[in-house]
Design a protein around this nucleic acid. Sequence first.
DNA 1: CGGAATCCTAAAGGATACTG
DNA 2: CAGTATCCTTTAGGATTCCG
Lengths: 130, 130
Amino acid sequence: MTETSREWTVFSAQCPSRASLARIANKWTAMIVILLDEEPRRFGELHRQVEGITKKVLIDSLRALERDGMVERVEQEHARYQLTALGRTLNEPLQALRVWAESYVDDVQAAQDRYDDAADDRTLRRISND
Amino acid sequence: MTETSREWTVFSAQCPSRASLARIANKWTAMIVILLDEEPRRFGELHRQVEGITKKVLIDSLRALERDGMVERVEQEHARYQLTALGRTLNEPLQALRVWAESYVDDVQAAQDRYDDAADDRTLRRISND
DNA sequence: CGGAATCCTAAAGGATACTG
DNA sequence: CAGTATCCTTTAGGATTCCG
């Protein structure tokens, strides 16, 4: 395996880095961090920009990111959120993930079509063998 | 927002790139892709190396990755899996995520401790105000 | 060994209503 | 507007058993 920190490895179930990976390898985290990296934003802005997220999920996500030290709430009254220094280090890898998802839409779609067609074939062949 | 593809955006709930993001921003996906990028591996190897994953979750993950065109099964009899060209493009961002998770364990832990201590304080203050 | 099938639980996530 | 509280549904994921 590639060496990173010698002490921690995400491949070990109990390693704290595994929990960290679970938190950051997450679509809501990715979208929120990317938006907050552009500029601090208020709750309502995030709620509108992350289309389809409910208030509950958004607040739960923000709290979890606060707890993990990636996001901080400034201006208590106006509920403005921003990234911490730690959170900012996260933008690059998450942004790369977002770019990947948007760049390869067609390739993924094509692969899915091929796979589903092949699955249909398999089903047909199985039925005709009965 | 940062511009990537003009046609797709993960921030739109119905955009196919959102589903793609959900698939790749996922701890199981990350671990499997990272391992397969090193070399093709058999089912049993993956099962041992991704500690804590069950056979069902592993097979479900592999099938989903196959359907999305990132993984292919070679040597049907020996069940050896490898990345496709598309899947290989995914290693860099996912590896970056893994490195992040392993590198900042201490910072995250410290943040959690601070957060939880502050939460205790808040609780105590609220109780004494009753 | 590499699965498939079934069942089940826990956790994520959604809907709705209410509040300062 | 920025939440909280409740309840409910859905999904991910785990446990177990069986099979070629």
